[in-house]
Amino acid sequence: MSTKRSDAEPEAVDEDAVARELYGLSPDEFTAARDAYAARARKAGNRAVADRIGKLRRPVQAAWLANLLVREQRAEIEAFLELGAAMRQAQEHLQGPELRELSRRRHQVIDALQRQAQALAATRGHPAVADSTRRALQDTLAAALADPAAARALAAGTLAGALEPTGDFGPLATSTPPGATPARKSTSTKSTSTKSTSTPARASGKGRARHAKDDDTAGAREATRRAAERERHEARLTRARADLEAADTAAEEAREAARVLEQRADAARDRHREALADAEDLERRLAEARDTVGRLDRQARDARRAHEDADELARTEKSAANTARARLRDLERNRAGRGE
Rank of each mutant, 00 (worst) to 15 (best):
G157A: 05
D248C: 07
K318F: 04
D147C: 06
K190G: 09
A257Y: 10
R333M: 02
A209M: 07
E288K: 13
L65K: 06
R335W: 01
A277Q: 13
P177S: 04
L276G: 12
E231W: 06
E164I: 10
G54H: 01
R290V: 13
T238E: 14
D111R: 14
T140R: 03
D168S: 15
E262Y: 01
G179T: 15
E21T: 03
T176E: 15
A228V: 11
K213D: 02
L25P: 02
F169V: 05
A287R: 06
R104V: 05
A75E: 10
Q61D: 02
R305G: 00
Q118H: 03
P171I: 00
A85I: 12
H107L: 12
P97V: 13
A33F: 04
N322M: 08
E245P: 00
G96I: 03
A8Y: 00
K195Y: 15
K185V: 15
D131V: 05
V49M: 01
G207R: 04
G161D: 13
L296P: 03
R104Q: 12
Y37T: 01
D330C: 00
R100K: 14
R327E: 10
D16G: 07
Q91C: 05
T176S: 12
R285Y: 12
L237S: 08
A75V: 09
T292G: 02
L99H: 09
L282D: 09
E332G: 03
L172T: 11
A122N: 06
L286T: 11
A112N: 08
T224D: 09
T31C: 04
R135V: 09
S319F: 14
G294Q: 14
R338I: 12
G339S: 09
T133K: 07
D111S: 15
E164L: 09
S196V: 07
R273C: 02
E222I: 02
V13C: 04
E15H: 07
E253I: 06
F80H: 03
A130R: 14
N334K: 07
L145V: 04
L83Y: 07
T323N: 10
E101I: 12
R329L: 10
D281G: 13
I77Y: 05
T189F: 14
R271G: 12
A32N: 10
R47H: 10
A33W: 00
A136H: 11
G170I: 06
V60A: 08
I77F: 02
A39M: 07
E234S: 15
A86T: 12
R255Y: 02
T133S: 12
R333I: 01
A277L: 13
A36R: 06
A149R: 05
E11S: 06
A306Q: 11
S319D: 11
G170V: 03
N322D: 13
R134Y: 06
R273W: 11
V13Y: 04
D248R: 10
A310M: 10
E280F: 08
A227H: 12
P97T: 14
L68D: 04
Q61P: 00
T224N: 13
A306Y: 03
S204M: 09
E82K: 08
I53R: 02
A242C: 00
R100V: 09
T187N: 07
R301I: 11
Q108D: 15
D311V: 12
E21L: 02
L113P: 00
P165L: 02
S319V: 11
A143W: 00
A324M: 11
A336R: 13
P127C: 08
E234V: 05
D35A: 07
R271F: 08
A79H: 01
A240S: 12
